[in-house]
């Protein structure tokens, strides 16, 4: 399996990369980890005329907290997140996902930002960026552009990232006091895409939920922001099992799965209900642990 022919450049700065991308026109494509793009090239689902490889740009592998934000550079690989103590200790939802995303070989190569830019509703990171309210910092010919992760994906494999823009960094607000998060995924085998997955974040004041956010993976053409389901929890007690059930039912109701080899649509919708409750419970327990 061989991709169709393309020109290739590997610039060493973001400015050079942006220029190369602009010169390549609408059929040019950025490659970071390449773990989604290369299969598409080989199956000839994508036939770019130019690949702009960003792997040689120094400084895009930043993974650190600064100015109230967690900064995840465009070359931070899944495996970097999986092995990071900062992520393990402060961003449990990211840590949850990093353990079960693809396989260790793919995790050594694929990137957080690349997965989001790919615009696939099966991607775990787009959901997590959405739930945690990430800012997606891109650079284009007219300079820096910031997209919100909440409404970033516009259709299947399409996002608000312009064809002439490079996503250089995701910035996630640092956890608040009393915040807990969790990502629950059901997959057929270790390394498969989610049959269904749910990410949830909760902020507690004592036992009262003051903020909640829920996102759904691979149960519709887009990554789903379950805003109404999450809003129904605000003001409720962390011990209110009925409120959790109601939220889970609302989340399942806005999921839009299709029947495929991973299961029937009804099964996946039921998974969303169950996983929403599990994610909320774990997020709640983690939120309480930070308050203790």
């Amino acid at each position: 399996m061989l991709p169709s022919s393309f020109e290739y450049v590997a610039p060493t700065s973001v400015d050079e990369a942006v220029q190369a991308l602009a010169a390549g026109g609408v059929d040019a494509k950025v490659m970071a980890g390449g773990q989604s793009l290369l299969p598409m090239l080989k199956l000839r689902l994508a036939r770019p005329n130019l690949i702009v490889d960003i792997n040689n740009i120094v400084g895009l592998d930043t993974l650190e907290e600064s100015d109230g934000m967690l900064r995840i550079g465009a070359l931070v690989r899944h495996g970097h997140l999986e092995r990071s103590e900062l992520i393990r200790d402060r961003y449990p939802m990211i840590f949850d996902a990093a353990q079960r995303l693809a396989d260790p070989l793919t995790r050594n190569r694929g990137t957080f930002c690349g997965s989001i830019a790919h615009g696939d509703a099966a991607g775990d990171w787009a959901t997590i960026a959405m739930v945690l309210g990430a800012e997606l910092h891109a650079v284009g010919p007219n300079g820096a552009v910031v997209h919100s992760a909440v409404d970033f994906q516009t259709s299947m494999f399409e996002t608000k990232l312009g064809a002439d823009q490079i996503l250089v960094e995701a910035r996630i607000p640092m956890p608040k006091f009393g915040q807990g998060s969790s990502y629950k995924k059901i997959d057929r085998k270790l390394g498969d895409y989610a049959t269904a997955a749910v990410g949830a974040s909760i902020v507690l004041d004592g036992t009262t939920i003051t903020e909640a956010s829920i996102g759904l993976t691979n149960v519709g053409p887009l990554t789903i922001h379950a805003a109404d389901a999450a809003a129904s929890l605000v003001g409720k007690s962390i011990d209110d099992a009925e409120a959790f059930e109601q939220t889970a039912v609302l989340a399942a109701a806005i999921s839009d799965p299709v029947s495929d080899l991973r299961g029937l649509a009804e099964f996946k919708r039921e998974l969303v209900r169950v996983l929403t409750k599990r994610a909320l419970r774990t997020a709640g327990a983690r939120a309480q642990a930070t308050e203790a």
């Binding site: 490889d53 070989l105 793919t106 050594n108 190569r109």
Partner: peptide
């Protein structure tokens, strides 16, 4: 780092 060599370009 362990990688799948069918998922990396030779030029990389």
């Amino acid at each position: 780092k362990s990688v799948k060599s069918c998922m990396v370009l030779a030029v990389q």
